[in-house]
C-alpha cells in the first residue's frame, strides 16, 4: 500500500474513539459534551479526508484547474457542523438547568441525589 494509504482514516478513527472515551468515562457532564464535540469533529475529518482527490483543488470551478476534490462530503459536513453546534448549545442549556436543580453537574453526585428522592 502506497503512503499515505489509509493513515488519514485511521488517525481520524482513533480520534473518534478518544472523543467517545471521554463521553463514556468522564463524570463531569460538561466535559462529556467536550468529548462529544471531539468525536463529531473527528468524523468531520474522516468525511473530508474521503473527499480529497490527489492533485485536486477546492471545488470552485475555474478554467485553470481540471481536477477538483469531491464537493459532496463538504456539503454534508457543513450540515453536520451546524447540527453539532445545535446539539452543543442544547446540551449546555440543559446543563445550566441541571446545575440549578441539583447544584452539581457531576454524574455520580446527581445519581446519588436522584436515589435519595
Amino acid at each position: 500500500m502506497e503512503f499515505p494509504g489509509l493513515y488519514n482514516y485511521w488517525i481520524a478513527m482513533v480520534l473518534m474513539m478518544m472523543g467517545l472515551y471521554i463521553v463514556i468515562t468522564d463524570p463531569n457532564m460538561v466535559k462529556k459534551i467536550v468529548g462529544l464535540s471531539i468525536f463529531q469533529v473527528s468524523v468531520f475529518v474522516f468525511y473530508i479526508s474521503m473527499a480529497k482527490v490527489r492533485g485536486g483543488t477546492a471545488p470552485i470551478l475555474d478554467d485553470r484547474f481540471t481536477v477538483y476534490s469531491n464537493p459532496l462530503p463538504h456539503v454534508l459536513i457543513l450540515t453536520a457542523i451546524v447540527v453539532g453546534i445545535a446539539t452543543t448549545a442544547l446540551a449546555l442549556a440543559l446543563l445550566v438547568r441541571i446545575q440549578a436543580a441539583f447544584g452539581t453537574v457531576d454524574e455520580e453526585a446527581i445519581k446519588a441525589l436522584e436515589r435519595e428522592t
Binding site: F44, A51, A58, S69, L78
Partner: peptide, 10 residues
C-alpha cells in the same frame, strides 16, 4: 486540515 484537504467552505 480542511484547508489542506481542499474543503475551504468547511
Amino acid at each position: 486540515l480542511f484547508v489542506i484537504l481542499d474543503a475551504v467552505d468547511v
